[in-house]
Design a protein around this nucleic acid. Structure first.
Lengths: 333, 333
DNA sequence: ATGAAAGCGCTAACAT
DNA sequence: ATGTTAGCGCTTTCAT
């Protein structure tokens, strides 16, 4: 492997000069710069990251905290984030965490052990202690698709989006609207809050115990659990708002198996607009999160934060969009 | 950050001794070993990877080559691989490659520039030159879900699986069976080969031009293209075998939109058994690849290859399974 | 069994 | 503008 010394020797200069050229510093004679550049090209020299890391005290790797379930939404989002992270030269280290106290603690310990440049959370750890500890570490951290005080975050306004989704149902004439959401995640609560606000705006009473069911994970399987629970309570509803497309898909699966037609008997609205939603049968009405942009901004923002300090990593609220497809229709008279 | 010297100083010993303990070497007095271990525990000392890398000449990072489309199947597989890679202490570097000569070359150049410990391919690069070049680099490489001579690989027997999928259709009474597959990927060709073999075994003539359509990518969108092409050629078929679940989903979408009932009018079989397939409407009959196991073996095998040499990284052919669900039924008389 | 010393490839003062 | 030097944290001969 060709090193900086080899280049220096061949050019008849010192390693420092080569280093300056490689790092695009000033104070280098342009003729010499040219020559070195040519040499680098010829030899295929690439600086050794480990050596740079050691002196720069940077590892060029960022951690990504994901839910252990790694659902479709997260996989899609991750894929966008990853592309951009790569373009800034970062490697990735994954932390899969379960919905358990012990797993969250374990995650923190690992994070502490690794020497990361920064960390991206696309899963919301519940324990507040986690966030305080990260803050003490002074480790640049950014949250995507949810927000936490004290950390930059990239997300949409969940509550407003929930409100719009449910208002769409209300405008279609629905009054008996149920919701399936998720426990312990702020997005689950905020989307539910939007749901209640829309209900109230429509003059429909709020009765959380009867109207909503909160499950433990944003997965198709838990969507099925949620729907079964709703069905067990009674069949007097004409619409369901699921906090997530995956929840919606699980719910629709149960509805279908129980003989309901969608949307004729029950309208369903999801949230996220994951890949499959536009192909599903019926195509799912949902709130679209701008995944590509969230991914790009997250990576960009973390990079700025790492290289420019806390102020550089800003908070961003991106626009969402209600996508009306086949899973919702006007309430039959 | 606490370093090996700090530990040594506190223990009143030399860094060498601490290093020996950390790396589990012999020739260390067990009392001293105990003491050092305790100190490490107390201080939370973790060896610096960059420093180790430099002297060991290993980066602890492995590359993963993926299709630029990063479809659902790949995302699922990747997620399994990643977990196991992490458990061996590897970080990850991603290479997204397009179906283009230039992108494949670019990928190779990047791989060469990075100093990786090894590389996992879950996307099949077409240019044979790529594989030769990697061989010359002596970079441990392993392929998953497809195979290449000279490299260890983990996969199922694609051709047999294709044969079984189509034979299932034949047993249901179908004779007019079309196939949608993918160009330039060995899995696409092998699955098609199984399809032809099953047709021939059933005494149905082979006529590739009429029976099959080859698209460019394993995505839902291309599944739609493929189905439209088939429909344009005529509507005299009662079953379709798609080389991939995503292709099948796209195909079903078009079929549905054109007024066909699945499976009453057209039976559909997919391949892979991705997450969504068991929830889709109708639930998709498909060939299940043992994704979790493929992921685990791939990571394990690469690790063995890296640390034990070429012989340690073996070839593995894993069993697949035909999963019969709702998208196929007997041909109406 | 243990320690001293060299060196991995790079960058950043510092000196010129 | 350029070179010299030290040092980042670790492992590994080589002595002892």
């Amino acid at each position: 492997m060709v090193s900086i010394k080899d280049i220096a020797k061949q050019a008849g200069m010192s390693p420092s000069t080569v280093s300056r050229v490689v790092n695009g510093k000033k104070h280098v004679n342009s003729a010499k710069r040219e020559q070195i550049l040519r040499l680098i090209e010829e030899t295929g020299y690439v600086p050794d990251n480990a050596a740079r890391s050691m002196v720069l005290k940077r590892t060029f790797t960022v951690g990504i905290v994901l839910a252990d379930t790694f659902n479709m939404f997260q996989r899609q989002l991750f894929s966008f984030i990853e592309r951009h992270l790569g373009s800034f030269g970062y490697h990735t280290h994954f932390f899969f965490v379960k919905f358990e106290q012990s797993s969250e603690e374990e995650c923190f310990n690992q994070i502490k052990a690794e020497k990361l440049d920064g960390i991206i959370m696309i899963h919301e750890i519940q324990n507040p202690y986690f966030y305080e500890s990260v803050k003490k570490l002074k480790l640049p951290m950014i949250t995507a698709t949810f927000s936490r005080p004290d950390f930059p975050s990239i997300h949409v306004c969940e509550e407003d989006a929930g409100y719009d989704a449910v208002t769409h149902l209300v405008n279609l004439g629905h009054r008996k609207i149920k919701m399936i959401s998720c426990n312990g995640l702020s997005s689950g609560n905020q989307r539910a809050e939007g749901y209640f606000r829309a209900l109230e705006a429509a003059g429909i009473g709020r009765n959380a115990d009867k109207q909503t069911v909160f499950v433990r994970q944003y997965t198709t399987e838990f969507g099925m659990y949620g729907m079964r629970e709703l069905l067990l309570r009674g069949r007097d509803f004409s619409a369901v708002f699921a906090a997530t497309d995956e929840l919606a898909i699980g719910a629709m699966r149960v509805l279908k198996d129980e003989g309901f037609r969608i949307p004729e008997d029950v309208s369903v609205v999801g949230f996220d607009d994951i890949d499959i939603s536009g192909y599903f049968m019926p195509r799912l009405t949902t709130i679209r999160q701008p995944l590509a942009e969230i991914g790009e901004r997250t990576a960009q923002n973390l990079h700025k934060y790492i290289s420019g300090g806390r102020e550089a990593g800003m908070n961003m609220v991106l626009p969402y969009k209600l996508i009306i497809r086949e899973s919702t229709c006007a309430l039959a008279q």
